[in-house]
Structure formats: structure tokens, C-alpha cells
Design a protein around this nucleic acid. Sequence first.
DNA 1: CTAGGGTTAG
Length: 727
Amino acid sequence: MKSIMRSILSNSRGNLKDNVHKIISILNDFTEKRLIVQGTIFHGYLIKKGISSQKQIAVKLLIMYLKSGKPNDINQMLKEFDGFNLVVRNCLISANLEWGKLDEARQLFDEMPERNEVSWTAIISGLLRYGRVEEAIWYFERNPFPSLFSWTAAISGLVQNGSSVKAMKLFVEMLQSGVLPNNVTLTSVIRACGELSDFNLGMCVLGLIVKVGFEHDLSVSNSLITFNLRLNDTVSAMTIFNRMQSKDVVSWTAILDMYVQMGELAEARRVFDEMPERNEVSWSTMISRYSQSGDAEEAVNLFIHMVQQGFKPNKSCFASVLSALASLEASVLGKIVHGHILKLGMERDAFIGSSLVDLYCKCGGTKDGRVAFDSILEKNVVCWNSMVGGYSLNNQLEEAKELFDKIPRKDNISWNSLITGYLEYEKFDEVFEVFSDMLLSGERPSKSTFSSVLCACASLASLERGKNLHGKAIKLGFHSDIFVDTALVDMYAKSGDVESSKKIFKRMPKRNEISWTAMIQGLAENGFAEEALAVFEEFEQTKSIAPNELLMLAVLFACSHCGLVDKGLYYFNSMEKVYHIQSNDRHYTCVVDMLSRSGRLSEAEKFILDMPCEPEVQAWAALLSGCKTYRNERMAERVAEKISELAEKNPGGYVLLSNVYASAGRWLDVLHMRKLMKEKGLKKSGGYSWIEVRNQPHFFYSQDGSHNESSEIYGVLELMRSEMVLK
DNA sequence: CTAGGGTTAG
């Protein structure tokens, strides 16, 4: 700052024009880098020098303040700059557009006493930037200055909105009206061809490019690289890149993205590290790619490096890093980044807002998430979905439903977010209700819709509904989708129809570790433990997929249920050595259960005591049940002692212990336990069972009430019993 | 007025 002042001062005796140029370039720099504090100090200096109201400088100062995002001072400024209204109003319009205050911008535009080409171009491109295509076209058609600029603004705006067909139509109209494109127009048009994945159209445009003489233009070449990447022609992309006489950051970033597209993230990183020049977009690209491919930590690391090296993150970059922070549930770092965003006035942006909503909700703070949601100015469907998803995630399902009903234009993800919320918290009736609303609304269910709703069927063992959905999925062409098929395998197995489950599993063209887990677990739970292990051996021979924790748990469960203790121990011991999977408490419980069931009680006890992590209460319970079966009362006494210790910490332990005492006939201890539970305000959740008859589940509760037709049911049972006794 | 980078569910 001081050095800038000094250089101005030393020049102050020189040519005034040179000084103005210098001041303007400094102000431009402050504006671009949003250095509002430095800018204000500099403003003070200019006032002192008596040149702050020089026309060009005054406008630049105004733009700097406008871009720094202080909408409340607008009116004051307008009054001060009442000499050159048109320019100032244009600035105001673009500033309002930048803040997303579209209606204010429109009002300002409509009330302008006179308008120039810049005013028209600003309002058209601004509206397009926020997807208000209809309004933009309305203005475009009334534009009295249809210059190359405004044609280009409209075309590029349409492309950015995904309305590439409309953009191409406009381009043809432009050519017909006798206006020739420049390199800027052409880059947008090539992008449109890429969005449409239309090779022939691209070739036509290429002909035009050569004809107009832009084939060696840097921007045009860059967009041609991207066009070829869109069409998966990496060879042509690389050829263009190699033939370019001059390359810039954009070219390098495009090639970086090419390697990502080819699945070579490491190679992309190498390009990134060796690029001759990097800017905030190159950083953004690398950060977002790490975030998208699941390496959130590296994304955040890179972001920190970027800031340390003095790069100013922009909206896209913030959106990417917030998404990475959300998946890491890093609320502390998230709040720091949020602070910076607030300082820059970017929290009103839809992309950043959505990420903030997601971040806070993933960290459990739906209230903070809602604040972030409410501060977004122009909400798109993603913002709504993030908030609905956030409520769903945190079991605030009423809020989720209420907000969902307010979404102006719902998309597939809106429906799925609500459905997964209900599924997660086992509100299965609501899952089906929302699903049928979805069908009624005309929204086509997607693969993830099917996998969620099928999962609800699996949890309810609702075979009829599951079969119905299976039919619908086939009709919609999802019959060989890996997610849908896996859900079907699980649904049929959980509903007891192992044959159908096996049939679907067998004809799956592709399987992932979840598919294999569903099949192995399904077979084991239905009493086909040996077959489950055979499937696991088949899995091992594929060698293409590594098993995960859940798959190994299913395998151990199978071993435990067919008495193959040594095999189970073998698999357990090879988990870390062979498969590099850290065994968790649930795996240990499974092994304890396995040993206890086969009577190897002292081994089980030693195993439990040697565990590197805290054993689950269930592990002790499994051992205790073994003690009971094999009548080892002394060990039972020790284990019960241990369980009651754990019960202090784990409320589930009381329930378990009271059951253990009950089965041992120690009723006094049972009473004691119940009393303790009551004192601690614990309730034993009632067990129940259910069957489904014609899509209608019938519940049977272990405690009160049971079933409202229980007398009839018992009547029939009695009848059947007497029949059986007679024969 | 521009090419390269952005958010949500599974």
C-alpha cells in the first residue's frame, strides 16, 4: 500500500493523464481482488489530493464500492454522482445483477431515462446468467442496438443456461442478419455444439472458423479442445493442444481435465504440478476433481495451499471446498471458510448457499443450515433439495415435508431426498406414500428411487409390494442396473424368497461388493450358510473387487451359523493380513458368538478379553448365552458381572441383563433391573412381529394389545390344534 | 460479450 502511494506521489509532478491511468489501473486491481479496505484508504488519499471527483476516477471508485457488495449505500452514491447518470445507472444495474437482485436491476433498467448499448447488453446477459431465459429474450427482441456484442451476450448466456439449441438458432439468425461472429461468439457456439454432443454441427462451425480466419485464435482453440473432450476424442484434443503456438492457463487446465476424464487423477495432478502458470480456475479444477472423486482431504489440503500462495478463491472454488468439508463433517474449518464468504458477500449465491446448507446439515446444525438457505437470493432447485435433504438427514421429517411441498419446480432429486429421509428413519408408510405421489405427479422414478423403495420393502419383508416394484422397474428399463438389482436381491432374500434372489443375482451383468454382501447375507440369514460360503469363494475367485467390512461380517455370520468355527477364525485372521480391512467391534462379536455357539467357551472369553477395542454388550451377551447352553455357571457369573458394569454406560445393557436374569429364573434380580431402568427413565421398546396380507401389514406386539383380531386368530389356532391332536 | 472450474440424493 505504502509503495503504491509513494509511486503515485513521486509521479504527482508529472503528466496528469499518466497519473489518471495509473490510478484507474490500481482501482481496477482493487475491484477485481475485492480489496475494499485498501480501496477505501486509497480513496481517502485521492480526496486529499483533490482528484477523487475527476470523472473517470469517480466512476471507477463507484464501481469498486458497488462490486464490494454494500447495497445499502446505493442511494447515497447515486445522489453524489448525479452528473453522469447513464454510466452510473449501468454500473448499478450490473452490480445488482451480480448480487442476484434481478428484480431491482430490472426496475432500474425500466426506469432509465435513456439507455445505451451497454445497458441493454447488461440486462440481457444478467438475466440469462440466472436462467431467466424468457425475460432475457423479451428484452433482446426489443433491443434497438443489435450489435455483435449483444448477439454474443445472448448466445453465450443461452449456452450457459443449457439452452444450446436456442443459442444455435440465435447464431443462425445473427449470420442471416449479416453480422459476422468474432472469436468470443465462436467460443460460445463451439461450446453449444459440445453440450449437444453434435459432431456434425461442430464440423460446420469449424468450417466457418477457418473461413473467418480464427482457427489459430487462442480462445477458439481452447474451446475446440473441450469440444473434442466432450465427444470423447482425446486424441484430437491432444493434437490441437500440441499444435497450438501459444498456450495459456485455460489450455493447460483443459488438458488437466482430460486426464481426469480418462480416470487418471494422478496424471492430472502431475500436469497441475508442472503447469507453467496456474490461476484460481486451475486450482478450482484440481480441488473440485479431488472432491468429486471422493478424496475430500486432498481437496481441502489443496485449498489451504491455494490460499497460502495468495490466490483468491472464487465462487466455484468455495462451492467445491465446502462440499469437501461437508463430506468430512469439518464444521470448525467450515465456519472459518463461511466467515470469509460472508466477508466477500458471496453467501447469497445459489451454488455457495447450497454447499453451506449441506455443510451445516451434515454437521447436524439444521438451524444454521436454514439461515444459509434463507440468505440465498435466487434459489434454484439444488438449494431446495439440499435443505430438504438436510432436514431428512437429521430426522426433522415434518420440516422436510413442509419445505418439499413449497419447492416451485421439483426434480427427481427432490423426491428422492424426501424418500431417503423417510427410509433412513424407518417411516416406511411415508416412503410408499411419497413414492405414489411421485408417480401421480408424473415424475419418472430413477434407479435410486427404486433402490430406496425396494429397501423399504426389504425392511418390511413386503414381498407383494417388492414384486410390484420389480415389474415397474423392468417396464422403465432398469432391469439390469446394478443398484436396482442389488436392492432386488436384498428385498427377495429378506422376504424369504431366496430362489428369486439367487435368480436375479446370477443374471446380474455387473456386481459390486454390496451386491455380493446382499447375496451372502441373504443366504446365511435364510439358513443356507454353506451356500453363502460357496458364493463367497466364488467372489474371491473374481479377484476384481476387494471385500469390505460389511461383506466380511456377512461371511463371519455365515460361518457362525453353520458351525464352521475354524473356517470363520481363518477368515477373521486373514481380514487384516490378506484384505487389509480393520476389524471392528461387530466382527469381534460375531467371532465370540461363533465360539460360544460351538461350546469353545474359554476360547471365547479369552478372545473377548484380548480385544483391542471396547467389546459390544452383545459380545458378552453371546458368551453368556453360550454359558447357559453349555451349563458353565461359574463363567456365567463372571460374564453377568461384566454386563452389569457395562449397563451403567449402555442403557441397552439393562434390557439385556434383565432378559438374562429372567431366563435364569432369577426374578428378584429382574425386578431390581426393571426398577433401575425406571429410575433412569429407560423404556424397553416393545418387540413385534408382522406379516403382510394383500399389501396390508398386520402387527403382533409382544406386550399390550397384540392384534385387534387376536381372539379370532386364537380361535382358528385352537381349531387347528385340535385337528392336529385328533390325527 | 469469452474458452477452463461450481452445489443436492443414491
